[in-house]
């Protein structure tokens, strides 16, 4: 079970009681990361839950959309929780945390301001790890059909007969 929103069979209260805060946005427990309000949770098997929490934050900091919930970023990166991908991700996130510590922070997730986290990302943006995560997000985030309506994008229209009678020329402000 790696689907976001699974709660390992735990109730919301149990989930939260077994977790500890990871930064301000996430909590992590044994084998899962969740939002602080337990609106969603993501089980991890191959990578550490703290690593997944950091990866989700990193994803948001690369492509920040304030009207797109963390859940979609979690979906975008959950594929890294595999035996093949995990070692490189652990190394990459460790390097990210090391860069944060080099600037005097406890770790990446503990940095409060986005601009300070982005400074850290800029310092590693030429790394293969950063480019892999960024490149993966281009499809991982923006090709989620559930994300499209958040941007107003309507996807296919053939099944509805196109826009010939549904507003292809409805612009009214010119």
């Amino acid at each position: 079970m790696t689907d976001v929103k699974t709660r390992k069979g735990l109730t919301r209260r149990e989930l939260l009681s077994r977790a500890v805060a990871a930064g301000a946005t996430f909590v992590v427990g044994a084998g899962y990361v969740a939002s602080t309000d337990a609106a969603w949770a993501l089980e991890t098997t191959a990578i550490k839950p703290e690593t997944m929490a950091t990866l989700i934050q990193m994803a948001r900091d690369i492509y920040p959309h304030d009207h797109v919930a963390d859940e979609y970023y979690a979906i975008a990166v959950k594929g890294y929780d595999s035996a093949e991908a995990a070692p490189a991700v652990e190394v990459g996130i460790a390097a990210l945390n090391a860069a944060a510590m080099g600037k005097g922070y406890a770790d990446y997730l503990s940095i409060g301001w986005e601009r300070d986290r982005v400074d850290i990302l800029r310092s590693i943006e030429d790394s293969a790890f950063f480019q892999q995560v960024r490149g993966g997000l281009v499809t991982g985030l923006y090709n989620q059909k559930a994300v499209w309506p958040l941007f107003g994008y309507e996807g296919e229209s053939f099944s509805k007969g196109g826009y010939i009678d549904r507003g292809f020329d409805d612009i009214n402000w010119l």
Binding site: Y63, P64, H65, H67, F151, G152, Y153
Partner: peptide, 13 residues
């Protein structure tokens, strides 16, 4: 990447 990029996409519509 970053907000210069994402604020553009925020206005996709």
């Amino acid at each position: 990447w970053g907000r210069e990029f994402t604020t553009a996409l925020d206005s996709y519509e």
